[in-house]
Design a binder for these strands. Structure first.
Lengths: 199, 199
DNA sequence: TGTACCGTACCGATCGGTCGGTACGCAATA
DNA sequence: TATTGCGTACCGACCGATCGGTACGGTACA
């Protein structure tokens, strides 16, 4: 990936995040990047490819990280914690990109839209599978796993509106806080009644 | 409010929800409503006022309902439950309007933007105050109330992407589910250590 | 001599919005 | 009852501006 293209994507993410995909014109982008029309279109195929690249990059990154975490973490509770931390850290580090994605990914068309939807589906399914595995092992509430997972994903996804990468609390602390709330809510009490732990 | 204006707002909500505020042109709206340019602008001041009206109506509605619930419900846990049910029911019943609001409210400008932000702030503060009151009474975790409330609001707000008004589960059931998860997560155990309940 | 990079000029389409003018119903007046 | 005046609803042409995108010539470096 050429360094110019990198710069253009950064600038596009900034503009799209501020004005929306349809609200930000290519004239603004020229100004922001410091290139004129011809040069701009030499590096990018068209406007939509910018939106696509922004979404795709983040989503593929998250799917990759999440897959690795799931592989390495047999315990479901711990797995959720690591998924949560990774997700929130990424949202905070790439707030602009996630803002663009959540607001405007459905402005994509054709294959590009389908690919992005596919990536979203794959990511969501990773969480779903971890939950399902917890249900199988008898440690998570079996009722409505899909809705439950959509709930915790909502907690994190909504955070792109207020999270700050260098905020007072670290992103890991916030992720843990949400994870604790969620886990306390869906964990079943240990089955053959062992002596009560502290917590 | 004239019936024509009502119709126009409905159609605008549908279009804006599908294509985004900037992505939906007035030509499409003419077609959808069945009125031509002149007639359209006879009823609406301008495009932005449509966006404003869509957001304002829903927000004022929710602030009104929430205020009343808080007045009538001294118990914080019960109050959260009623707030949650009312919120999710409204999101499901006006999914198009909420889609438009969440995606594009920041396309508003000047006083209209400020008014909408003010309404959002007021609604969020209602939840915050209920939480704070629970902390004062010693039944809720005192740590990071703001982040905790943003979490549960995230669970509900994100639902506009998948909720169905006539879905398999009723909206109340889903609201209760999330509320239970949240409350289990933030409720402190009853103070003078009573014998452990089943649950 | 080719190729990557960039600027200039320009395209047709569409953007949100305004214009003068018309059709029609209601109410007051003669 | 006939006439007049007026407000509401609507049409269709038109506005300047901006939209995303392209054609092409120049330049610098291989």
């Amino acid at each position: 990936m050429s360094p110019q293209r990198e710069r253009i994507l950064k600038a596009a993410a900034r503009l799209f995040a501020r004005d929306g995909y349809h609200g930000a014109g290519m004239a603004l982008l020229e100004q922001e990047v410091g290139l004129k029309r011809g040069a701009l279109y030499h590096h990018i195929g068209n406007k939509e490819s910018l939106l696509y690249e922004i979404s795709r990059t983040q989503l593929e990154h998250m799917v990759g990280i999440a897959s690795k975490i799931v592989e390495e973490t047999p315990d479901e509770a711990e797995c959720f914690r690591r998924l949560a931390r990774a997700l929130l850290r990424n949202i905070a580090d790439h707030r602009l990109e996630w803002t663009v994605h959540y607001r405007d990914f459905n402005a994509l068309t054709g294959e590009r839209l389908e690919h992005v939807l596919e990536l979203r589906r794959r990511y969501s399914e990773i969480w779903q599978r971890v939950y399902a595995s917890g249900v199988e092992r008898g440690i998570l509430q079996p009722a409505e796993p899909r809705v439950a997972v959509l709930g915790i994903l909502g907690m994190f996804n909504y955070s792109y509106l207020w999270i700050e990468a260098e905020g007072r609390l670290g992103t890991d602390r916030i992720a843990d806080l949400y994870c604790d709330i969620f886990l306390r809510g869906v964990l079943l009490p240990p089955h053959p009644a062992p002596p009560a732990a502290e917590e």
